[in-house]
Design a binder for these strands. Structure first.
Lengths: 189, 189
DNA sequence: TTAAACATTGACAGATCGGTAAGTTATTGT
DNA sequence: ACAATAACTTACCGATCTGTCAATGTTTAA
């Protein structure tokens, strides 16, 4: 299997897993959808779990790149970037085919914290937290870790509610709450 | 199968599904763990999905009863009840065997919004929202719906983060954010 | 006592699961 | 040109999945 075919497989698996779930999508189905035989797939991935881990790595890369880029496009000051988080979330929630966050879904299917898939999901959230801490630092708040963790709670909660109750208004509510928290962190200005 | 055996089955299924996941736990395993034959189980539940839906009903009842009761035990004023939400969450997160919220897990395994299991999960969250709106009304805020939705975002986010990054500090961060939002809703007092 | 009604069982169907063995085709280096 | 090798496929393995069937106990009622 060429490297490009491997990439194609991972990309197709990302799409199919996101739509159908990790456990519900079998290797046979991926073989059928990609036209690549199972044996070829298993030449490059020792187990299904290995494939899922590579899919999650790609998703992490794609998502964080898109997320940061959109925030930079929408905002021009550090404080604006903090609120833009929720505008970008709103765009995501309203995309056709939005079905929650792949890492929340993954950690729900593999709930035990010592499972590699769970750990990979935790890592993704930690990387996002680090990014938001950086934004909070640039905004000059006294305790960037605290504000960033608060905004992350709003972000994850918004994802869950947008998935369960639909996208309308969720990101807006989260943004309004975020503005209150940001102003408070900046000294109630 | 007597009614009590049916109850025992649902309770055991709740425990096993919560620990192991819905798709990962098969009917054979439930039969082995309860000592009830599969055929007997299928006399009372037409499909596995029906069993899961009854499990979710029981979980919804158990959880909301416990949640409301603990809040009432910890708080004596309406505003206190709003913040006590997060004290109770902290207790939950630190329980042995905490593995996120059963309904977030369920909606992650059955992500399509028209799926009965997904709809049941959405209903649970809606009932909780209604409860929090009631608390916010009693607290006398001008827009109880807005505050309640903001606090729900913190709650769901806290569940996700406590599951992925461990329980320490998560409920406390959420409570601090909640206090800011509550004070703001009350008029920045 | 005995027959009807119900409860329960082990064994099985058919499908699908993750994963593999053996064999075939295509590519490569010399 | 040709042997070595890498890429790839078909067919299959045992296990497990949801769900069912025929047979056997067990209760109930007249």
């Amino acid at each position: 299997m060429s490297a490009s075919k491997k990439t194609i497989l991972i990309e197709k698996a990302l799409e199919t897993y996101y739509t159908g779930g990790f456990q519900a999508v079998g290797m046979d189905r991926l073989a059928k959808e990609t036209g690549i035989s199972k044996t070829s797939m298993y030449k490059h991935f020792r187990t299904k779990e290995d494939l899922i881990l590579e899919v999650l790595n790609l998703r992490d890369e794609n998502f964080r790149n898109w997320f940061v880029r959109r925030i930079d496009e929408l905002a021009s000051s550090p404080v604006e970037r903090l609120t833009a988080i929720f505008d970008v979330l709103g765009e995501w929630f309203h995309e056709d085919g939005f079905l929650s966050c792949m890492f929340i879904r993954a950690s729900s299917e593999y709930p035990n914290s010592d499972h590699p898939i769970h750990m990979s999901s935790a890592k993704h959230k930690r990387l996002l937290l680090t990014y938001v801490i950086g934004l909070a630092e640039q905004a000059g708040v006294p305790d960037p870790g605290q504000l960033a963790r608060q905004l992350m709670l709003l972000k994850e909660g918004a994802i869950v509610i947008a998935h369960l109750h639909g996208p309308d208004g969720v990101a807006t509510h989260a943004k309004q709450a975020a503005e209150v928290l940001i102003n408070n962190a900046l000294g109630r200005s």
